[in-house]
Amino acid sequence: MKLEVKNLKKSFSGKEVLHGISFSVESGRALGLLGRNGAGKTTTIRILMDVFRANEGEILMDGKTFVPGKYQIGYLPEERGLYPKRKVIEQMVYLAMLRNVPKKKAIANAKKWLERLEVAQYENKLLETLSKGNQQKVQLASILVCDPEIVILDEPFSGLDPVNSQILQEVVQELIEQGKIVIFSSHQMSYVEQFCEDIVIINQGEVVLEGNLDEIKRSYGKNRLVLKDTERTVEEFSEYCKQQLSDVLTVNGQTKEAVIVKLAEGKTRRELLEKILAKNIEIEQFDTYKPSLNDIFVERVGD
């Protein structure tokens, strides 16, 4: 299955908040939907779920118009909430039955997922008596009861302790391996890097970066290097590069330990290396720059 979102535009009371969002996601691959607060992620997801109608654009599933009602979708919204005064199992079965799952199967699935997420002992407790983390797990379990083909997780890790995060990570990994379409929205970049092969970064209603995460990282590293010498501090070395090596590179920034540089137009790594040797620099690190997703994100959407 391949889900394609094409050129979505959406206005609220005359103000356009999405200016043409496009991306695609396939079965068995997870897509990281990234963006700052208010970038338009949730609106995009809601259009996908047919809560809002887009002013323009279309959503296709395997080339045909996507009708959310035809598929089982597990949607974990960022704003969590179920019925505090109802029993855990009761509301899980209810939510599954709303999605046309027969009652018997709903009960069996609910028990299975509560077991899997290690909250089975709360089955007959009122939801409000559970801790926040356990309520989160119940909510996640409740969206999986319908055996979704598409799973949309909006900030699934917020509020979970490291042990619970570990359980959830395993579950997400399993879902991906089972060939589900997984759309994953989070601000915790480390999780996105761990699960997602593809990413989309949305900024102010526009896609600013889209594609395979490895390729993006590689292209970011292209022509960029990290340098370090043994004699100077990072600041001193950065200053030195600016003064002495400006014909072969420009200084791009620095990490805690090294200086990030970009090769000047038309220069090769060999030329840079020769120059470094000629200057008699005690080089300690000469490497391709591999940005973290965090770096890419900040660079793309930071002010």
């Binding site: 919204p77 909430g81 709303l98």
Partner: peptide
């Protein structure tokens, strides 16, 4: 108020 609505309207 309890935010269950988001899951509900996307289910039915």
């Amino acid at each position: 108020s309890n935010r269950a609505i988001e899951v509900l309207v996307t289910s039915i």
